[in-house]
Design a protein around this nucleic acid. Structure first.
Lengths: 288, 288
DNA sequence: ATAATTGATCGTTATTACCGATTGGTTTAA
DNA sequence: TTAAACCAATCGGTAATAACGATCAATTAT
């Protein structure tokens, strides 16, 4: 049984006339006759009664018609779905992102959703190492994070922008008015930092190692909003990319002196893998 | 798009391996590769990501899979339907029935035979317990009888109609003119009853027990036509469903007073078992 | 009667599904 | 590092078959 035969059968049944059906199908009458016969042979029962020059469907033909239609419709639905997908009328976009990038993520999500409202978006915050693992396991379509030290060839890196680290304190703190703060000063203060694995944490650790300074890390946490809330209480200070506190009015970012610390925000995807239409569209919106 | 390609795609997607899929489909790997490629070209999007020696379905492939499956299932459903239907051209229908139901059985058999002349019909009269045993041993397709006290979950009961018991006497008997007869009067008379196991007998026994009356059962017999013949001699009387004597002009059924005795005629079949097309057709005819 | 219409059939052609062998890439084992 | 194993893609050739035109047989309309 082939879809071709079902298409022929349906047309023939609807027109009750092989010659006309063949014409509409742009095939010869003999071809239609043969293909119907072949289908009947496979099904083991006639689909048409041939009475003189007229044909009409048998009981079997009438019953089978409904299934043939449904079968063809399913095939067509699948076809249409993929055509829609290429026009982004459907599908899913799964984004992994660092918390420090949400200020560029959120407006991009809004724009994307306005343009492609039928695409379902999933956003996952997490550590960059965790997200890259997920990316390699095909659980994510794209990762937005700050770049890692090593670069892997199975990953494709698209730079977004640079951001510097800042020392985060409450607006009311005496430190809030300083124009800059040195690592030596920071060494005296209790820090709350993102847990190991976060790209910012990796970067902070690296800086302290470079300057041979051991900071007082009195709290580690793997949730940035909570970290910011804790810093807001005034009991801790932290170091984050400036962009992480851009919408936190009660917190202030003080530049760290004598430290070259630009972090590079990047988009990471898999190389040599078919890239979803939704990913392409999303990248286009981000780059605007 | 052809069903062949959908079949290939589904197998490849399920095994995530072209070589193995081709083997299971009994085609060469090159053929599978070509057909998948052809399908992808028609759909305008890759269905598989080819990364290294592994393949896995793209988003499009995953979405399309469901439709491909449904499409194939519809085709298969249609195929199965016609195979079932064609069995009505050759199959057998084995019916077990109580004697009391022959008045509805015979016209149904005639109609069924006119519609499906090639189906061989076997009819077996017997006790309901015997027939239900046979049904469970798959020796019968369907049983027509009066309902038993207990209902088993492996059996499916379809009610047909209700019938009452009557006291059967010859037309010439002085009792024939009575408008009703009480159990006390019956107690004085010699009875010929169907053998134990017949549903009517079970029901009659139960009624006597309920009224704490012991009847004079002077004859038991497991063949209803013979029983009726004996009753016709005037030496015995009996108790049967009224429908049993509906075509016996020399016998009369006298209602039994003060006894709630509707018997429920039912069709019994096995649950959770494939129901023959012939059975469905027969049920349809019966219900008309 | 005759012509027109229709589906089935026959012989042929064009297409294509299929195969085996090979290639090029990657992964695994030595 | 090299060799072996594995896998999908590709190529050229063959067998299967979808398609065609012509014709036949049957029915219907004129």
């Amino acid at each position: 049984m082939e879809l071709r035969q079902l298409r022929y059968f349906i047309k023939a049944k609807e027109l009750q006339n092989f010659t006309e059906a063949a014409a509409q199908l742009f095939i010869s009458q003999s071809t239609l006759s043969q293909q119907i016969k072949q289908l009947e042979d496979e099904l083991g029962t006639p689909l048409f009664n041939r009475i003189g020059k007229h044909i009409y469907t048998t009981e079997a033909g009438n019953l089978f018609y409904s299934y043939a239609l449904q079968c063809l419709n399913k095939a067509n639905d699948g076809y249409q779905l993929l055509k829609d997908l290429s026009k982004l009328q459907t599908g899913t976009l799964v984004i992994g992102t660092s918390y420090g990038l949400r200020h560029i993520l959120t407006p991009a999500l809004v724009k994307f959703h306005q343009k492609y409202p039928k695409v379902v978006i999933q956003v996952l915050f997490g550590t960059s190492s965790e997200m890259i693992d997920r990316l390699c396991r095909f659980e994510l379509d794209i990762v937005m994070t700050f770049d890692e030290v090593e670069s892997r060839k199975e990953l494709k890196y698209r730079p977004l922008f640079e951001s510097t680290l800042g020392f985060i304190v409450t607006k009311d703190s005496p430190l809030a008015k300083k124009k800059s703060i040195s690592l030596q000063e920071i060494k005296q203060l209790k820090l709350a930092l993102p847990a190991k694995g976060f790209s910012t944490r990796n970067f902070v650790d690296e800086i302290f190692v470079q300057h041979q300074i051991t900071p007082q890390v009195s709290l580690e946490i793997n949730d940035i909003p909570t970290l910011l809330e804790l810093v807001g209480t005034g009991h801790w200070n932290t170091i984050l990319t400036n962009t992480s506190v851009s919408n936190q009015s009660h917190l202030v970012s003080v530049p760290i002196s004598k430290v070259k610390n630009p972090q590079h925000a990047v988009l990471i995807s898999l190389t040599d893998v078919y890239e979803k239409q939704a990913v392409k569209a999303f990248l286009k919106i981000l780059s605007d």
